[in-house]
């Protein structure tokens, strides 16, 4: 297991009587693509933020490589172990395509962009000049620029048309299978869940 939720429970401070997650136990392996499914409010995004080290569980712990991430600096966990891809791409608007990718890590952006199918002519353009699908590819390229072994994606196809969404799904699968990364995707999409190696319904916890 590269990433593991162990007896994880969580509630928001403002709603102490309502547990968002209760005693969740699950392990994620490298080289596989996981899909987290479930209705709104089922705790998908919460679990993702706990796995990313953006927050800490009320009870239980998140282990990375068998060690609790809370024992380390969470910023370091985010920087070295986790890559994040968001539904709204979250690219920085005053940087070019290549510069946005550079933000992700030390790897040279060009080969990654090439692999993501972003043509050379786009590399020096402002990201806002790209289409939604291209922007999401740049966001994934930025995630790949780091050496992180885990890629967490929150509704990565939520803002894309069907054809582009499939492209992105294929890309994520490739990253899991070819690069040996653990890809965890939060989604509402049944198609995406079906194409994942493992689909996890949040109500099963």
């Amino acid at each position: 297991m590269i990433l593991e939720a162990k007896n994880v429970s969580y509630f928001y401070k403002s709603q102490k009587d309502k547990w968002i997650l209760e005693n969740v136990n699950y392990g994620f392996e490298p080289g596989k693509m996981y899909a987290l499914l479930g209705p709104s409010g089922s705790g998908k995004t919460t679990l993702l933020s706990l796995l990313a080290g953006l927050d800490i569980p009320t009870k239980g712990e998140i282990l990375y490589d068998g060690k609790p991430i809370a024992a380390r600096d969470l910023t370091e966990h985010r920087k070295h172990h986790i890559s994040l891809v968001f539904q709204s791409y979250n690219l920085i608007d005053y940087l070019t395509v290549a510069e946005n990718v550079k933000l992700g890590g030390r790897k040279a952006p060009e080969p990654i962009l090439d692999k993501m199918g972003i043509g050379k002519e786009y590399w020096k353009r402002n990201v806002l000049q790209l289409s939604g699908g291209q922007q999401q590819r740049v966001a994934i390229a930025r995630a790949l620029a780091s050496d992180a072994n885990v890629l967490l994606a929150d509704e990565p196809t939520g803002n894309l048309d069907e054809a582009t969404a499939w492209d992105v799904i294929d890309l994520l699968k490739k990253i899991a299978h070819e690069e040996g990364k653990c890809v965890i995707v939060v989604t509402h999409s049944k198609e995406l869940a079906d194409s994942a190696d493992i689909a996890i319904r949040m109500d099963q916890f």
Binding site: E76, R78, I82, L84, N90, L103, R142, S146
Partner: peptide
Amino acid sequence: NYEIGILLSLGYK
């Protein structure tokens, strides 16, 4: 906030 959030999520201190 948006930009700061992105940078923090990428592990910037």
